[in-house]
Amino acid sequence: MTAPILVLGNVNVDLVLGPVDGWPAIGTEIEVERAEMRAGGSAGNTALALSGLDEPHLLVASTGDDPNGIWLRGEFDARFSDWIVDPGMTTTTVGIVHTGGDRAFFTTPGHLQRAAPEPLLERIDRAPREGAVAILSGNLLMPRIRNATSRILAELRARGWQTAIDPGWPPQGWTEKFRQTFVEWLGLADHILLNEEEVSGFGGADAILGLLPSASTLVVKRGPEGAVAWRNGEEIRVAAPKVEVIDTVGAGDTFNAAYLARHVAGASLEEALRHGVEVASFAVSTFPRSYGPAQK
């Protein structure tokens, strides 16, 4: 299948619980209002949002071959999915939502630790048209994919894709070695999609912009404050609508989906940024998750 958006990266089982007000004492038990088992992972959330928005795309990702893997693959639209089934356990993440919408994650290793670049690259065709975008997200949770990220981005470009990255927070921290690796990725990405904490960890937006080609786009997702983006020396800011936040898990990934959908449709940077903010804002205010009035 050819589609203008290609989604690569981590897909796993998410168990979302909450809200909690602070952490319970060790050995105690508390009740929470909501619990939902759902498909997740950064790439998974982006693909689900694209499906919810009825945007053509292709998700290429792996799961384990256990019952959780079977269930997980069944949560995605088969028309838009190409699965790598890896022998062994499927990765599971427990997301604890705190009062106010912030969250913490606990993730088992599982299939994400085993995912390899070769089966991924074997499934990637040439871009179907000019302006088509491939996003690689959550790669920092996949050691072999992380180590091959520069190769993957270069291969995508060679096959005619624009590239986008949303690697997430580095589990090892912003070490000097990882900073050098991240700089290499910046030179191979057309769209860099980060949140404020990740940008701050590197040293600020100015530090990143100083390393980017002028035609590349840096997007900083600012949660309830909206988003800001830079391209060709232009700065665009978009405020977020006021919503009652229920669950922020996957908000940034949902933003990525809506932003890229508008971008490949030929929208301006401001229009794409605004669509990303509006769709993500609606999504975090719904349970179970919906993409609502911002849908096509």
Score class of each variant (00 low, 15 high):
56 P>F: 09
166 D>V: 07
222 R>D: 01
155 E>K: 09
27 G>W: 06
276 G>Q: 02
89 M>R: 13
200 S>V: 12
120 L>F: 09
22 G>H: 08
175 T>H: 03
70 I>V: 15
249 V>K: 05
19 P>L: 03
155 E>V: 09
160 G>P: 04
67 P>E: 13
7 V>P: 14
171 P>G: 06
158 A>E: 15
281 S>A: 15
25 A>I: 02
18 G>S: 07
64 G>E: 06
190 D>H: 14
194 L>R: 00
86 D>P: 01
262 R>S: 10
72 L>W: 03
14 D>M: 11
271 E>V: 11
59 L>K: 11
73 R>V: 02
76 F>A: 12
197 E>N: 10
106 F>C: 12
129 R>L: 01
76 F>T: 03
28 T>H: 06
206 D>M: 08
38 R>A: 14
232 N>W: 01
287 F>W: 15
224 P>T: 12
80 F>I: 06
123 R>P: 06
64 G>L: 04
42 S>M: 13
273 L>S: 04
51 S>F: 05
120 L>I: 15
231 R>M: 01
75 E>Y: 00
1 M>I: 11
275 H>K: 08
110 G>E: 05
216 S>N: 12
209 L>A: 05
8 L>H: 11
9 G>M: 08
248 T>R: 10
33 E>V: 12
195 N>C: 03
155 E>Y: 02
123 R>D: 08
42 S>R: 03
216 S>T: 11
